[in-house]
Design a binder for these strands. Sequence first.
DNA 1: CAATAAAATTATCACACGATAAATAACTGG
DNA 2: CCAGTTATTTATCGTGTGATAATTTTATTG
Lengths: 220, 220
Amino acid sequence: MSIQKQRKTPEKEAAPRRRLSPEARRDEIVDAAVTLFAETGFDGSTRDVARGAGITQPLLYRYFPNKESLIEAVYARVFLKSWDPAWDETLADRSLPVQERFQTFYEAYTDAIFQPVWLRLWHFASLRDAEVYGWYKEVVQEQILKPLVRERRAELGVNQGFQVSAAELEAPWLLHGGLLNYGLRMQVTGRADANARAGVIRQALDMYMLFSQNKLSLDK
Amino acid sequence: MSIQKQRKTPEKEAAPRRRLSPEARRDEIVDAAVTLFAETGFDGSTRDVARGAGITQPLLYRYFPNKESLIEAVYARVFLKSWDPAWDETLADRSLPVQERFQTFYEAYTDAIFQPVWLRLWHFASLRDAEVYGWYKEVVQEQILKPLVRERRAELGVNQGFQVSAAELEAPWLLHGGLLNYGLRMQVTGRADANARAGVIRQALDMYMLFSQNKLSLDK
DNA sequence: CAATAAAATTATCACACGATAAATAACTGG
DNA sequence: CCAGTTATTTATCGTGTGATAATTTTATTG
């Protein structure tokens, strides 16, 4: 729909540039593929990818044996780089309240993933093979939700060891899923307000803090 | 992947049946399209739809002017019938506590939509045009979330009139979105346990009841 | 039972797609 | 500045797709 026939200059059609290093060219192809696939899904054509990268379509096959391997390169580009190692430290910093730490984290995290490219590619990928979803589920659970439960326990003075049960993860999953769904809703309806986002995150954390306090005081 | 070359009987290939009423044939085509598109997305071919319906591909064009109109028929079939009018009464029955009413409702509702066909088609549709998503958002907000806020207010003895502000909808949206996300997670990972589902719904409603009580008592 | 309306099939078109082979042009080392 | 390497393009193949026209088959009815 928004892809056009490539008309860089109205007159001269010929593209002047050529002969990049293999690494640079490969990067450009993946860039173009990310952009296209985020719009159209993975059924976007290799010709359109090539057009986006400013090359001819057969050249693509010098860098990727087939379309599937290009798709895998797109996965790697978008999903693997979406976790910032600094976040682990943010979450573990016990000089601040849990709510404050996770507020900071979730604002940064959603800043990274609440973007059309990430959200749409993630959905397209989840629908086409369960592996990507399984990988994402694992990351969220181990890097975000389990730390949340453990840190909250510590804050409330309850020591149940390092293990986190599936039952304890349900509430965090509900809120994390709610935030993800919020991101999709904002993206589809076109609105994307950072202030409102911070408010929703705050409310989600409010709910968890209240719930966990209530739950743990009842268990005593 | 699971679509095969149609081999009803190993020997006799010819399909004996023909000549249905236009309404019946149309229904069969839409059925087949729903099944196929839920698997492959809307890029599933008209030939595979026809094969699933046991007819030849050009016949499809006697009932639908083009593929797009077939897709719209699929929307109508799957999404429009997904609301049971009896649910409105369930939600309004003030002889029961709000939590109990919405527990009953959400178990029935998720029973209807936590199915591969609904969830996958909904995601495919949301990704391909925002209109479907907008329609769904409206239904959820007006039929489920606003009633939830109003009924909860009444239960807590707070009267703020009929209007429900966007701010008040945030918490319900978080939990509803969390449930939707839970459905997707269960579907992708292959697990679908009705007991576990009821438990998650209960927990979501617990969280909302606790949160709304806390919020409204602070506002007083 | 022949005549007729229309449901269904056969045959086919034009085009877009993924992929391959051969030809060309740009950079590099001597 | 020439030769060799290789990045890039041109040309093309086979297949699958959405869609249309012409033909055949089925059921109904006078």
